[in-house]
Design a binder for these strands. Sequence first.
DNA 1: AAATCGGGGCC
DNA 2: GGCCCAGATTT
Length: 346
Amino acid sequence: MIFYKTLNNWYSNNKRELPWRKTANPYYIWLSEIILQQTQVAQGLPYYSAFVAEFPSVFDLANASESQVLKLWQGLGYYSRARNLHATAKYVANELNGKFPDNYKDLLKLKGVGDYTASAIASICFNEVAAVVDGNVYRVLSRYFGIDTPINTTKGNKEFKALAQELIDKKDPATFNQAIMEFGAMHCKPKNPNCDTCPFINSCIAYNKSEVENLPVKLKANKAKVKHFNFLVILSDDNQTVLEQRQGKGIWQNLYQFPLVETKNEVGFTEMKSLAETHQLLKDRSFELSLYNKESIVHKLSHQHLHTKFWIVKLEDELKSGVSIASVTDYAVPILIGNFIEAFNF
DNA sequence: AAATCGGGGCC
DNA sequence: GGCCCAGATTT
């Protein structure tokens, strides 16, 4: 049996109904693919619906402000995706008259579009024979063919890309790409795959060598670094607070946060008091300091564990350059800040 | 080639 | 607590 025939048969009987499967419009396919990068369908789905509703066309997205795009993206993570999404929308709307590139090579030039996304759009929208390789594809192929090359290496990427390009249904690349990903997500799962009912049970090398749970092979990630974040939640006499936009290179670029004091170690009240007294915003001002959360909130990211304290700074006078407390929910903030805003009774 | 970039779900 | 997710970009 030819690989893609078995796969397509499974897909036709088991695929989910998803909104981006009802269209081949490159704007909607592109939008869904960016949202779904490193993101499970269940998590991305409500964001896709919100973006389609708010920005029905690439021109609507292009005409929005970046802050509006980031606000709608809030909570989804990997915020460079949102910034690149907006930049690409402006490029397509203004330089390409709203028409997306119609082939892999040109799609690859768009900001935020790499090998996977260019292949997905080219195949789904334009029937180009370009195989996708995502986490699902790595898992399905490494198991079926018993390949133990680490997937997060250049060698592994090239090997699996070439293999997928051999296996793809040249007559219907769009269906093949979506089918192999759906099969990986729903059937050939990372944990507890459904081998008992698998249509590939007779030919899957990993199954027949009892190696399913050992594949794919992936080089271990480095341990996350611990950081200590202290946020100054300033409350003025005239119901204002201070939010600052994050600049520079690191996490949460262009999102808003309360003024941040990062420290080498966890700090207590006395140490924070003296840090606050010398802070640019609070110098020569009279305030009362209190700690919102006695135990640090540990916010875990892939490469950082943020031990976080929210310090309440009650000002005895007014604040000239703040924002009104009522408006804090208008700003795009990291979920760590958003959770605090929701829980804190302003 | 290795590190970085989020947040949620599963075990 | 570790691993994974319809990866891309920077270092």
